[in-house]
Amino acid sequence: MKLLIGGYTKKKSTGIYELPLTLAENGLEMQMGPAKEVIKVGGPTYFVQDGKLIFTINNAGAKGGISSFELVNGKYQEKDSYLTPGSSPAYIGINQKKKLLYTANYHTAVLAVFSFDDEGKLTFLDSVTHTADSLGPCPEQADGPHPHFFDQTPQGNLVSCDLGNDCVDFYSFKNNKLHHLAKYQNEPGFGSRHIVYSPDGNYFYVVGELSSKINLVKFDETNWQFKSIATYSTIPDDYSDHNGAAAIKISHDGKFIYTSNRGHDTITVFAVNDDHTLQLRQRISTFGEFPRDFNWDRDEKYVVATNQNSDNATLYTRDAENGCLTPVQKNIFVPEGTRVLFSE
């Protein structure tokens, strides 16, 4: 098993790094080995994988976009790029079956769809640009819409989370064209960032970066009806310093939700009750500063969080019964990490 970690390339980092994950000497626990650069690329703050292909955000100076790399004889080779003048996207999602990629550009407010082939060739299909329909009151929202997520829904539509507009927008994608279907509006200043769904597809949990909250919403994707059920803080009530909630994950069995907190520097664990409401189970340190992303292996037994500002990663084991995390290895050097992926 191995990890791929990428992030900003403003200081020490030069691209995407690979870390081996092997049994420790005691034969009981896993441990991460040293990070080794495997893809040289600018600002791979998010990337996805399809077999031997990696599709990553690429900040190429005056241009930004996405690039594809293929693993050939143990080394990654660049296959294609789609770059345009201006900033790079913040998020890239993938539909491996349909061979589609979805990007959200935080700075330009553009959502885009691409196709790819088995060789990693990229083809632009369509895009839409968010407008300032419902800008929130926070300083981070004053300059316009900021979509931070664009990916699939349970029924195969597409969804974006817009931090600037405090909203979640839904789209269809038919005949290579995007069409707006519906909008769910979060509270002013929520800062909608990422979203996950209950296994039955009838509820979603959207995390707000600016509010450090999770909003539970009952969701009818056929008739586009929404009902806000509850909102939960990802940080303690008495925490007054700056925090930005970031990643959100839901376990495959739908029993636990996890979020990262940049500022409080923790992962918050919630148990999901039978009625889909949440119960706080744990807040655990990431043992570093500014944890943007974390992820788990296929069996959800191991979790790795990466700390962007302190250039380190932490390995945990996850208890499937109570959802809690236990740190087993700390202070693994990884520069400017913002994306964690257990490699296939």
Rank of each mutant, 00 (worst) to 15 (best):
E187K: 10
V168S: 06
D118L: 04
G51M: 04
V72N: 11
Q329C: 09
G323R: 03
L111S: 11
T9Q: 06
V41G: 07
G7N: 01
P154Q: 03
Q96C: 11
D297L: 12
I66Y: 00
V110W: 00
G191P: 11
L125R: 09
H242F: 00
F55I: 11
H264I: 04
E300Q: 14
L100P: 10
K75R: 15
A182L: 01
L278F: 13
V303M: 14
F124V: 07
N312W: 07
K249W: 13
T317G: 08
G86F: 07
G120C: 02
T103S: 05
L216C: 08
V206D: 15
I16D: 04
C324M: 04
S160P: 07
A271D: 09
A62F: 02
N261I: 09
V269L: 04
S88Q: 15
P327R: 00
K63H: 11
V110T: 14
G7E: 03
Y184T: 04
L4G: 03
N273E: 14
F226Y: 15
A245M: 11
Y302S: 03
P154F: 02
T338V: 11
T153L: 06
P188N: 12
Y17V: 06
N58P: 07
D117H: 05
I229Q: 02
C324F: 08
N243L: 06
T266F: 10
L125K: 15
N295F: 07
V340F: 06
G74P: 12
H130I: 05
N26Q: 00
K75I: 14
T123P: 11
S251E: 00
E221I: 13
A313T: 07
N105F: 01
C161S: 02
E209P: 10
Y316E: 02
P139R: 10
K11T: 13
P291C: 10
S68V: 13
Y17D: 00
Y239L: 01
S127V: 01
N59S: 14
L135G: 00
N165P: 03
T45F: 00
D166N: 14
R318A: 14
D50S: 13
K218V: 01
H194D: 06
Q225M: 04
P139H: 12
T314Y: 11
L100M: 12
V196K: 12
L178V: 10
A246K: 00
